[in-house]
Amino acid sequence: MTGPELVDTSELERSSVVANNTMNRERGLAGVNSYTRELGVDLLTHLARPAPSWLDLCSGEGRALREAASALPADAVLTAVDLVGPLVPLPTPPTMEEITASVSTWTPTRPYDLITCVHGLHYVGDQLGLLGRAASWLTGDGLLLAHFDPESIRWADGGGEAGRAVVAELRAAGFAYDARRHLLTLRGARRPALAFTYMGADPTAGPNYTGQPAVGSHYTPTVTDTAG
């Protein structure tokens, strides 16, 4: 059985499904169309600590961080990372930095108390690679929240979905998964070794549970050499 033609990260990020997505453009901190509603967590309560830090991956216009800035202390650190960035540049609060970069290659220089990725993984090729890297960017009691669609994880040989195996692996690595919310949660920094090797992405995978076109991420099981 053969699968779809897969593309690398560079080509994926030039595709219309990624470059033109508007999934997270207008979402604010609280209210009907908000991070609080999507994640089911009061983020400001988690950030009620000295010198709080929040990294938002695939941040779109960065509205949630802008709104949070006015409620957090002057020594807070708020970092927004997005492939496109704000479509209309706005003045940023002193505690906030906006970075236009690919989340697939960008790396922070500090740990964070909170890391969010609201529906952003749907447009990332190596979703498991980003989750593993982001887990290592947390503080000791930091919180990672990311929407995740197991049906988007496929075997590279065309053998169908690998989601059940991936969710089991993520849970074994310390993640919790809420299937109703399609939400992964992780508390505390770690470096999970997930037993999957990324092979490429399918930008023609079609709509996911949100109803919007999304990316299929294709993997093979990592073979561990136990000889010796």
Results as ranks from 00 to 15, higher is better:
L90Q: 15
T100C: 13
A74V: 13
A101G: 15
V77T: 15
V103D: 01
V103Q: 05
S53H: 05
V88F: 08
V81H: 03
T92K: 06
E38F: 12
I99R: 08
P94C: 10
L83D: 08
S59L: 02
L39I: 04
E11H: 09
D42W: 00
L44N: 06
L78S: 06
E38C: 12
L87Q: 12
H46C: 08
D82T: 11
A101N: 13
G3D: 07
E98N: 10
P93V: 03
T9N: 09
A71P: 12
D75M: 07
P52W: 00
L43W: 00
G28R: 06
V84G: 08
S15Q: 09
L78H: 05
M23L: 14
A80D: 12
S10P: 00
T109V: 07
A74L: 12
E61Y: 03
E38S: 15
N33A: 11
P73D: 08
D42Y: 05
A19Q: 10
V17S: 10
V18G: 10
L57Y: 02
G3C: 08
W106M: 08
E61I: 00
E38R: 15
P89K: 00
V7Y: 07
P108G: 11
V81F: 00
D75F: 02
E5V: 13
L43A: 07
L6M: 10
P93A: 09
M96Q: 14
V32P: 03
A101K: 11
A64N: 08
L43Q: 06
T107I: 04
R49F: 01
A64E: 05
A48G: 07
V18K: 00
L90T: 14
L6K: 09
A69I: 02
S59E: 05
W106L: 06
E13V: 01
S15N: 11
L90S: 14
V84E: 12
D82I: 02
A76S: 11
S34A: 11
R37F: 07
R110E: 14
T107S: 15
T92A: 14
L44P: 07
T100E: 09
S15M: 04
T100Y: 00
T45A: 15
T9S: 14
L12V: 02
S104W: 00
P50G: 08
D56T: 01
E11K: 09
L83Q: 07
S102R: 14
P91L: 06
A64H: 13
S70R: 14
A19F: 04
G40Q: 09
L47N: 12
R66K: 08
G31P: 06
N20P: 00
V84S: 13
G28M: 04
P4G: 11
E61D: 15
G60F: 02
D56P: 01
N24D: 13
R63Q: 13
R25I: 09
